[in-house]
Protein backbone atom coordinates (compact mmCIF):
# COMPACT_ATOMS: atom_id res chain seq x y z
CA UNK A 1 0.00 0.00 0.00
CA UNK A 2 1.48 3.31 -1.04
CA UNK A 3 1.39 6.42 1.13
CA UNK A 4 -1.47 7.98 -0.76
CA UNK A 5 -3.88 5.08 -0.31
CA UNK A 6 -6.70 5.75 2.09
CA UNK A 7 -7.99 3.00 4.36
CA UNK A 8 -11.42 1.43 3.91
CA UNK A 9 -14.35 2.13 6.24
CA UNK A 10 -17.66 0.30 6.45
CA UNK A 11 -20.73 2.54 6.54
CA UNK A 12 -23.87 1.92 8.61
CA UNK A 13 -26.88 4.19 8.32
CA UNK A 14 -30.03 4.63 10.38
CA UNK A 15 -32.77 5.40 7.84
CA UNK A 16 -35.01 7.06 10.42
CA UNK A 17 -35.35 7.05 14.15
CA UNK A 18 -36.94 3.86 15.36
CA UNK A 19 -34.87 1.72 12.99
CA UNK A 20 -31.45 0.24 13.65
CA UNK A 21 -28.35 1.13 11.66
CA UNK A 22 -27.92 -1.02 8.57
CA UNK A 23 -24.81 -1.76 6.54
CA UNK A 24 -24.85 0.37 3.37
CA UNK A 25 -21.44 -0.21 1.85
CA UNK A 26 -17.92 1.06 2.21
CA UNK A 27 -15.84 4.14 1.46
CA UNK A 28 -12.22 5.19 1.50
CA UNK A 29 -11.08 8.09 3.68
CA UNK A 30 -7.89 9.41 5.22
CA UNK A 31 -9.38 9.61 8.71
CA UNK A 32 -12.59 9.23 10.71
CA UNK A 33 -13.89 12.74 10.14
CA UNK A 34 -13.41 12.41 6.39
CA UNK A 35 -15.01 8.97 6.49
CA UNK A 36 -18.18 10.52 7.95
CA UNK A 37 -18.15 13.32 5.36
CA UNK A 38 -17.66 10.91 2.48
CA UNK A 39 -20.33 8.54 3.80
CA UNK A 40 -22.74 11.46 4.00
CA UNK A 41 -21.96 12.55 0.43
CA UNK A 42 -22.08 9.05 -1.00
CA UNK A 43 -24.93 7.36 0.82
CA UNK A 44 -27.35 10.08 1.93
CA UNK A 45 -27.88 12.31 -1.11
CA UNK A 46 -31.63 11.61 -1.01
CA UNK A 47 -32.51 11.66 2.67
CA UNK A 48 -31.58 8.02 3.15
CA UNK A 49 -30.48 8.56 6.72
CA UNK A 50 -30.57 10.45 9.99
CA UNK A 51 -27.46 8.94 11.55
CA UNK A 52 -24.21 7.46 10.24
CA UNK A 53 -21.69 5.07 11.79
CA UNK A 54 -18.34 4.41 10.17
CA UNK A 55 -15.83 1.82 11.30
CA UNK A 56 -12.48 0.77 9.88
CA UNK A 57 -13.09 -2.38 7.83
CA UNK A 58 -10.10 -4.05 9.46
CA UNK A 59 -11.75 -3.62 12.88
CA UNK A 60 -14.65 -5.90 12.01
CA UNK A 61 -14.42 -9.46 13.29
CA UNK A 62 -16.37 -11.73 10.98
CA UNK A 63 -17.33 -15.39 11.12
CA UNK A 64 -15.85 -17.61 8.45
CA UNK A 65 -18.30 -19.17 5.95
CA UNK A 66 -16.26 -22.39 6.32
CA UNK A 67 -17.50 -22.55 9.93
CA UNK A 68 -21.13 -22.07 8.96
CA UNK A 69 -22.06 -25.68 9.59
CA UNK A 70 -20.66 -25.84 13.10
CA UNK A 71 -21.99 -22.39 13.97
CA UNK A 72 -25.49 -22.45 12.60
CA UNK A 73 -26.61 -26.00 11.92
CA UNK A 74 -27.04 -27.01 15.59
CA UNK A 75 -30.01 -24.62 15.71
CA UNK A 76 -31.77 -26.50 12.91
CA UNK A 77 -32.88 -29.54 14.94
CA UNK A 78 -34.05 -27.59 17.98
CA UNK A 79 -37.54 -27.08 16.68
CA UNK A 80 -38.90 -27.01 20.23
CA UNK A 81 -37.60 -23.44 20.39
CA UNK A 82 -40.45 -22.40 18.09
CA UNK A 83 -44.01 -21.89 19.34
CA UNK A 84 -45.49 -24.01 16.54
CA UNK A 85 -43.82 -27.10 18.07
CA UNK A 86 -46.46 -27.21 20.80
CA UNK A 87 -49.95 -28.60 20.21
CA UNK A 88 -52.54 -26.60 22.11
CA UNK A 89 -56.22 -27.43 21.68
CA UNK A 90 -58.16 -24.89 19.60
CA UNK A 91 -60.50 -24.33 22.54
CA UNK A 92 -57.76 -22.68 24.53
CA UNK A 93 -57.79 -19.00 23.64
CA UNK A 94 -55.29 -16.18 23.83
CA UNK A 95 -52.20 -18.34 23.53
Amino acid sequence: MSKQDWPLYEVFIRARSGLSHRHFGSIHAADEAMALDHARDLYTRRNEGVSIWVVRSTEIIASDPADSASLFEPAADKIYRHPTFYKIPDDVENM
Binding site: Q4, W6, D31, M34
Partner: peptide, 16 residues
Protein backbone atom coordinates in the same frame (compact mmCIF):
# COMPACT_ATOMS: atom_id res chain seq x y z
CA UNK B 1 -5.18 15.61 -7.04
CA UNK B 2 -2.22 13.63 -5.77
CA UNK B 3 -0.97 16.30 -3.37
CA UNK B 4 -4.45 16.57 -1.85
CA UNK B 5 -4.63 12.83 -1.17
CA UNK B 6 -1.13 12.84 0.26
CA UNK B 7 -1.80 15.89 2.44
CA UNK B 8 -4.99 14.33 3.84
CA UNK B 9 -3.10 11.18 4.66
CA UNK B 10 -0.22 13.09 6.28
CA UNK B 11 -2.67 15.12 8.36
CA UNK B 12 -4.46 11.95 9.49
CA UNK B 13 -1.16 10.38 10.52
CA UNK B 14 -0.11 13.49 12.41
CA UNK B 15 -3.43 13.63 14.27
CA UNK B 16 -3.17 9.93 15.13
Amino acid sequence: GRWVRQAARAYAEKQA
